[in-house]
Design a protein around this nucleic acid. Structure first.
Length: 877
RNA sequence: GCGCGGGUGGCGAAAUUGGUAGACGCGCUAGCCUUAGGAGCUAGUGUCGCAAGACAUGGAGGUUCGAGUCCUCUCCCGCGCACCA
């Protein structure tokens, strides 16, 4: 028969063979190894290095890695010297937990897992520079993580502090605030508890202002005169960081505390044996025995009807002896202490509190005497741990006042031009003793005009804030939600914190608490072998059991000392890995200055939204710190940041081992090839949006590549008969694919390539040069098949070293255009016209168009709008 | 509650400055080719309608010759933060 199956088989697209062949070839040619070449423009593309979990590579890794791979491949062909490195964020709990279960050393587990990841990544053909691979759990790497910690210590930015931490009773680990989600452990979902523990802290709050301001900094190195932002980040990522840092401008205002005895007489606090210091007993003068509140609404000061302080506030203990309801107060405090985080943050929960009987505060604005309450809706660790309550203008205070029958006093009215929340005659009531002088059903929280505020009546909120603060001797201050970073973990599989505790030094130098840094020359402090990885109930690291390791000599006094057994959180190693990539083998510094100057900052960093407030903020902090020490040349680490959307399982749920819906990329690579997998993941939908995996759609991507493969059968030796149309369509494709890659609109880039292939198939013959251009555009997406076809066309050098196709705008201009005819806004016809046809001619052609005439019959033309090269819009009556 | 994203065919989605809504792909339908096909090729495929045509981008208004796109109000979904004074 006419069977051509054999010859077809010979010619079939054999992805397995092709992909293996070229991966080896590229390796042999060292095609993707980056070298510092002074004078040649560089591009540093970065992906978040993976945690080598036992589950293997996730299809989500493939999505983000492919995206950056495409960009890097394009940059190389645009003449950039490209660094696209890879490594392992290898410290972490899952590995340690696995070690606990199996007894296998985490280092072994890590080694096995990275080997699997490495093979998986190589099989997909990413153009990583594998010679710069880093591993955060490698002593040669964490030596420098420890070294950076010592610099923090030296500058006083690392300190140990006893504090209440979030404790996960399941993982037996302390958590950073950032790792607690809705009162639960981020990793295992267990309710966290509060524990008192000495913790190493990093003073990230010292950098809060700069971390915030530099988000909107202007690039001063750009001398072109345009004010280019320093960070090319999408606004939503900047917003997320800004919200997290949480700057608010407000004022500290002092309220004097007075105590009232049984006879309702005011007694100065000095007379009580509270131990508080007071310099005056005269009503109306300033007393140091007072309470400082933080407020952003000093304009509402005249509306204060009570003061609330956090149960943990020191003043409560000071006042305790003077309280008549001492037992109740004590019981409230102990109750709120054991309250779990989840209860405290539940928004359904009603506010509770208790009055401190006999304790009053004097409003510095009007000398009014208001009661003092404690309530756990006031946070001890924000602001001053005390607030002035203005129920008329704050929702929380409103709720609380309504519940406990506290007075509500309105002092702000809305702009009269906008609907007011209150009636006219209310504004003339000026009484300090009303229980509720508003007719409102909720707090009015907007800015407005002041009333009931003495000489400030009629002022607007904004100016009143400053004036009132000044008037009563308050202080304008700035607060941040950001807290210092809890840097200790009581676990094994992390970087040991390189300090020792020396009792002798603690006596001679009490400032440092006896903590002595390990000399830099003694780094790294290596993790010792342990028998058991199990963390302890007491909250001590498993390292504490290794007495031989723990007992050491003090580097200062040579006396007996004990090593710190806490380790660093896994955010430590990832806070500076992008710097190590520039010089991964360096043994004398974390990276050579010359290399840092050449490669940094990272030009483009893609990663997940989930790292916006943790990793991204932490690493910016470390980078700025190193910049201050003169160790890195730029104030920001990442010039451009983008984020990818998650890949969900079919049905829109998260992929997880337990649900059994995890897609293994190996299986796809084996059955349809890495190129198909790459094309599919780029085509599946908008890159920055979450999307569900859909196996049935992979066939379309495979089909597309097969059609590209078969196009070679349409090669025509005579390229002279290429019509201008074909040329134009190629140019359009160059433009579209180039632009789309820059904007990470990979789905439409592939769609444009599909359109080009469809057109070529339809025409039935293609010239070599057009085919080559198509392959060149497709090459970043599908590097193997394009390389094979490119080479079969007789090219000796790799397609990935060929220049990126140049867009020729002249060739792309069409000489005839389609003109749309609209009648009363509805499309009624169209016609072809030469590009640049005059308005008059177009109108004429439109009105005489056969399809249009019937619509114009018996109608009067009211108006005609002509958009040249586009449309003619006719309005008829 | 606040912040950030989204709502367009059966499905994933396209749509420069407002200018043919649904490109591209999946799926589906019919036909061709095959011993066969989860292969390939051709044609079709928003909804209603025989058709002419009408109606269609979460909903309601508005601006405009013209709105998925701009304005006002509103509903729903996802993510983040969450008593931050």
């Amino acid at each position: 028969m006419k069977k051509i199956t054999t010859s077809a088989n010979v010619d079939a697209y054999d992805h397995a063979k092709i992909e293996k062949k070229w991966q080896k070839e590229w390796d042999d040619q060292k095609l993707h190894i980056a070298k510092e070449i002074p004078g040649v423009k560089k591009f540093y593309g970065l992906i978040e290095f993976p945690y080598p979990s036992g589950e293997g590579l996730h299809v989500g890794h493939v999505r983000s890695n492919t995206a950056m791979d495409i960009i890097c491949r394009k940059r190389r062909r645009e003449g950039y010297n490209v660094l696209y490195p890879i490594g392992w964020d290898a410290f972490g709990l899952p590995t340690e937990n696995y070690a606990i279960k199996t007894g296998i050393h985490p280092a072994i587990v890590t080694k096995n897992n990275t080997a699997i990841f490495r093979k998986q990544l190589k099989d997909i053909g990413f153009s990583f520079d594998w010679t710069r691979e880093v591993n955060t759990s490698d002593p040669a790497y964490y030596r420098w993580t420890q070294w950076i910690f010592l610099q923090f210590l030296k500058k006083g930015l690392a300190y140990k502090k006893k504090m209440t931490i979030n404790w996960c009773p399941k993982d037996l680990i302390g958590l950073a605030n950032e790792e607690v989600i809705n009162g639960k452990c981020e990793r295992c979902g267990t309710l966290v508890e509060k524990r008192e523990k000495e913790q190493w802290m990093l003073a990230i709050t010292k950098y809060a202002e700069r971390l915030l301001n530099d988000l909107d900094a202007v690039d001063t190195s750009d001398t072109s005169g345009t004010k280019k932002p320093l960070l090319d980040w999408p606004e939503h990522i900047k917003d997320a960081q800004k919200n997290w840092i949480g700057k608010s401008e407000g004022a500290h205002i002092d309220f004097r505390i007075v105590l009232e005895d049984d006879k309702n007489a005011l007694v100065d606090s000095q007379k009580s044996d509270s131990g508080a210091s007071s310099t005056s007993s005269t009503f109306g003068t300033y007393s140091t025995f007072g309470i400082k509140v933080f407020t952003t609404r000093a304009d509402t000061l005249f509306g204060v009807t009570y003061i609330v302080i956090a149960p943990e506030h020191q003043l409560v203990q000071t006042l305790m002896p003077s309280l008549s309801n001492r037992l109740e107060v004590e019981s409230y405090i102990s109750k709120s202490k054991i309250q779990s985080e989840i209860e405290r943050t539940n928004d359904e929960r009603e506010k509770t509190g208790i009055n401190l009987n006999g304790v009053y505060a004097i409003n510095p604005a009007n000398n009014e005497k208001v009661p003092v309450w404690i309530a756990d809706y006031v946070l001890a660790d924000y602001g001053t741990g005390a607030v002035m309550a203005v129920p008329a203008h704050d929702t929380r205070d409103w709720d609380f006042a309504k519940k406990y029958g506290l007075p509500i006093k309105q002092v702000i009215v809305g702009d009269p031009s906008t609907p007011s929340v209150r009636s006219e005659n209310d504004s003339h009531q000026k009484t300090a003793t009303v229980t509720d002088n508003t007719n409102n059903t909720k707090a009015y929280c907007e800015d407005g005009t002041l009333i009931n505020s003495g000489k400030f009546d009629g002022k607007d909120s904004e100016s009143a804030r400053k004036e009132i603060t000044k008037h009563i001797g308050g202080e304008l201050v700035t607060k941040f939600k950001l807290r210092d970073w809890i840097f200790s973990r009581q676990r094994y599989w992390g970087e040991p914190i390189p300090v020792v505790k020396c009792e002798k030094c603690a006596i001679s130098n009490p400032e440092g608490g006896g903590w002595v840094p390990v000399p830099e020359s003694d780094l790294p402090v290596k993790l010792p072998e342990v028998k058991k990885y199990q963390p302890t109930e007491t909250g001590e690291s498993p390292l504490a059991a290794v007495t031989k390791w723990v007992n050491t000599k003090c580097p200062v006094c040579n006396g007996p000392a004990k090593r710190e057994t806490d380790t660093m959180p896994n955010w430590a190693g990832s806070s500076w890995y992008y710097l190590r990539y520039t010089d991964s083998e360096n043994k004398t510094a974390f990276a050579d200055k010359k290399n840092l100057e050449y490669w940094t900052p990272v030009d483009w960093y893609n990663g997940g939204m989930e790292h916006t407030t943790l990793h991204l903020l932490y690493s910016r902090f470390w980078h700025k710190f190193l910049y201050d020490l003169g160790l890195v040349p730029t104030i920001e680490p990442y010039t451009k940041r983008t984020s990818h959307g998650l890949i969900l399982a079919e049905g829109g749920v998260k992929m997880s081992k337990s649900k059994g819906n995890v897609v293994n990329p190996d299986v796809i690579v084996k059955s349809v090839g890495a190129d198909t997998l790459r094309v599919y993941e780029m085509f599946m939908g908008p890159f920055d949006q979450a999307i569900s995996w859909d196996t049935s759609n992979i066939a379309g991507s495979r089909r597309f590549l097969e059609r590209v493969w078969k196009l070679k059968n349409l090669l025509h030796p005579d390229s002279s008969n290429n019509s201008k149309d074909v040329e134009r369509s190629i140019q359009k494709t160059i433009k579209k694919v180039s632009d789309d890659i820059e904007n990470m609109r990979f789905n439409t880039a592939i769609s444009a390539l599909m359109i080009a292939v469809n057109e070529m198939e339809k025409i039935g013959k293609i010239s070599k040069s057009h085919y080559e251009t198509l392959l060149q555009l497709l090459a970043p997406f599908a590097p193997h098949i394009t390389e094979e076809l490119w080479s079969s066309l007789g090219n000796e050098k790799s397609i990935h070293q060929s220049p990126w196709p140049a867009f020729d705008s002249k060739m792309a201009v069409a000489d005839t255009v389609k003109i749309i005819i609209q009648i009363n806004g509805k499309m009624r016809g169209s016609f072809m016209a030469a590009a640049g046809t005059s308005k008059e001619t177009l109108q004429d052609l439109a009105q005489n168009n056969a399809e249009v005439i019937k619509w114009l019959k018996d109608k009067i033309i009211d108006k005609v709008i002509v958009i040249p090269d586009r449309l003619v819009s006719i309005v008829v009556k």
